[in-house]
Each structure stands twice: as C-alpha cells, then as structure tokens.
C-alpha cells in the first residue's frame, strides 16, 4: 500500500512540472505574432495608436518579456491567475465558471467510454475471430474514424431536429431558467448528445486496448497455472485475466483525462457546451495570455493528480509493481 509520504513526494515533484509548462507555454505564446491589443482593436473596429499604447501599458505588454514572465510566475506561485483584460474578469472566476461543465462532460465521457469499452473489449476477446469480435471491431473503428463534428451534427439532425428527443445545444433551457431538481434534469437532458458523441470517439480506444490486453493476459503462464489448479474459466477470467488486463486501460484513461480536459474543443463548439476547451481555444486566438496560461495551469494540476491516482490504482491492481 502506498504511503502518505509517497503521495506528498509525488505532489512536490509535480511543482517543477507545472511551472515548466507555464514557462514553456508563455515562451511559445511570445512567438505568436500580434497581441491582445491588436485583437481588441480589431474587434472594436478601430483604435488610435495612442489608445493602443495605453492598452498595452495597462495589460503590462510594454514590459520586457522576462519581466512579464517573472511577474506571472510570482503570481502563479501564490495561486493568483491574474486578470483577463479581454473579459474584464479575474481568470480564476472565468475558469471556475467553466470547470463544472467541463468536469461533468469529461467525467461522463470517461466513465461511459471505459465501462462500455471494457465490456466490448472483453466480449470481443471471449469470442475471438467470431462474428461478435468482428462486429465489435468494425463498429468501434467506424465510430472512431468518423469525424467528431460530423457525428455530432448527425446526432443533432436525428435526435433534435427529426425526433425532437434532445435539445440541439447549450447546457440549459434558456427560455425556462429552471431551478432546483428541474435544473439538474434539464442539464442531464442537454448532456446526453455531447457525451454520446465524445464517447463514441474514445470508445474504440478502450475496446481495442481491452481486447488486446485480455488476449495477452490469457496467454500468460499464471493463467495456465490457474487453469491447472482447476479454477473454472469464469473464475480465471474474472479473478486473474480481467484484473491484469485493466492495467493498460487504466493507463490510457489517465492519459485521456488531459486530452479530454481541453481536447473537447470540437464537441464544445458543435454543442455550444460551455467548457474550458472552447474557452482556451478562443483565448489563444484572442492572445488572452493570462487566461490561456491559467487554463494550462489548472489542467496541468488536474492531470498531475489524475496520474498520481492512476499509479495508485496500479499498485492495487498489481501488487508486484513497486511505488518508489
């Protein structure tokens, strides 16, 4: 069992990673031509050079780069993510308002994808090279290779426009402004289509990984031993094969958290889901540095924690793995 000291050490180790990411992205963004003042002027329609200079000064863009970086790092160390000049709001407030919807979508998708993927993957492995296997393989690859925006739009056409079962987009019904339990139901109703669209994409990965993994484990010596001990096939699979086969799946799930966290840009765009991915995407093209770095910072912290959790899961699934 991993000790508390281990967890704390891992968290301490994460600090430089987080800072390195902030610095890397900060420097990368410096390479991008144009700045926030250009964008604001572009949107506002026009601006005098004096006004632009004043904007840059109030954004701190007139400072030398290294000073901007130092000031930013100083802020971040105290968990102050700064101010988004574009939105006229503190970055933390903006991120917090999007974190809930993001986690909701991400959690739902990951749970669905892992659960259904493991189920289909083991099913395919059990029926290796028979029609069930082929059907599952074909369908999951089909789902995976379909461009997400196309799948999303087709689901909207079918389930919203033609059948009228689900709303096209958004997170709540704006004509109603539900409260209490009705609001929860309303949000769940809006969640269905985006979650399904994204799950379809991630499903294939887990199903295929699980299938390969089950097959690999099933051929291991310990399984042969277990069979020889006279355990039933069902017991072998459940107690030994599935447990070990979950390892790569858990690894992948850990990896995917980071991806889904900000990688749902397309689904968020199609379904107007108020997630962080879309916010980050918009802030990149608006050169809203504080906001974009803030999102990178938060997502970094989140993934660090998830990776830790994955490693902890490892040691529970396979006690032979030492946590050092």
């Amino acid at each position: 069992m991993p000790s508390l000291a281990y967890v704390l050490r891992r968290l301490a180790q994460a600090v430089p990673t987080v800072l390195a990411i902030v610095v890397l992205n900060f420097l990368l963004l410096q390479l991008a031509p144009g700045d926030a003042a250009d964008v604001l002027a572009g949107e506002a329609g026009s601006a005098t050079p004096e006004y632009m200079a004043q904007l840059r000064k109030s954004f701190g863009l007139d400072q030398p780069m290294w000073l901007q970086l130092l000031l930013y790092l100083k802020q971040v160390v105290t968990f102050d993510l700064g101010f988004s000049f574009r939105h006229g709001m503190p970055v933390s407030e903006l991120i917090l308002s999007r974190l809930g919807p993001t986690l909701l979508l991400m959690g739902t998708v990951l749970t669905l994808a892992v659960f259904v993927g493991v189920l289909l993957g083991s099913l395919a492995a059990r029926h290796l090279n028979r029609w069930q296997d082929n059907l599952i393989s074909t369908l999951t690859v089909l789902a995976y290779a379909t461009p997400v925006f196309w799948a999303g739009l087709m689901l909207i056409v079918l389930f919203s426009v033609k059948l009228g079962w689900f709303p096209t987009s958004g997170m709540q019904k704006v004509a109603a402004f539900h409260e209490g339990f009705a609001k929860v139901k309303d949000i769940a109703h809006h969640l269905v289509l985006p979650a399904v669209t994204l799950t379809l994409f991630y499903l294939a990965l887990y199903a295929r990984l699980m299938r390969a993994s089950v097959l690999e484990q099933a051929s291991m010596d310990y399984v042969v031993t277990a069979r020889a001990k006279g355990l039933t096939e069902r017991q072998v699979i459940r107690r030994h094969v599935l447990r070990n086969a979950m390892l790569p799946v858990v690894t992948m799930a850990g990896v995917q958290v980071g991806a889904i966290f900000g990688g749902a840009v397309v689904v968020e765009t199609v379904f107007a889901w108020p997630g962080l991915g879309l916010l980050a995407y918009e802030s990149l093209f608006a050169r809203d540095l504080n906001l974009l770095l803030g999102i990178f910072f938060v997502s970094t912290c989140l993934v660090v924690m998830v990776n830790l959790a994955v490693d902890l899961c490892y040691s529970m699934l396979d006690p032979r793995i030492e946590l050092r």
């Binding site: 925006f149 739009l153 426009v161 096209t168 958004g170 704006v174 968020e268 379904f271 107007a272 879309l278």
Partner: peptide
C-alpha cells in the same frame, strides 16, 4: 430577451429549425 452563443454554424441552423 436572451442572447445565446452557439459557436458552430450547423448547430445554429439546427437550433432555428427546432425553434430553440
């Protein structure tokens, strides 16, 4: 009056179709 923000053009059309 509620202003809604839907980033995707196809979805905006669909929302008009469904009268959302």
């Amino acid at each position: 009056v509620v202003a809604r923000f839907i980033a995707d053009a196809g979805t905006r059309s669909a929302a008009m179709e469904t009268q959302e």
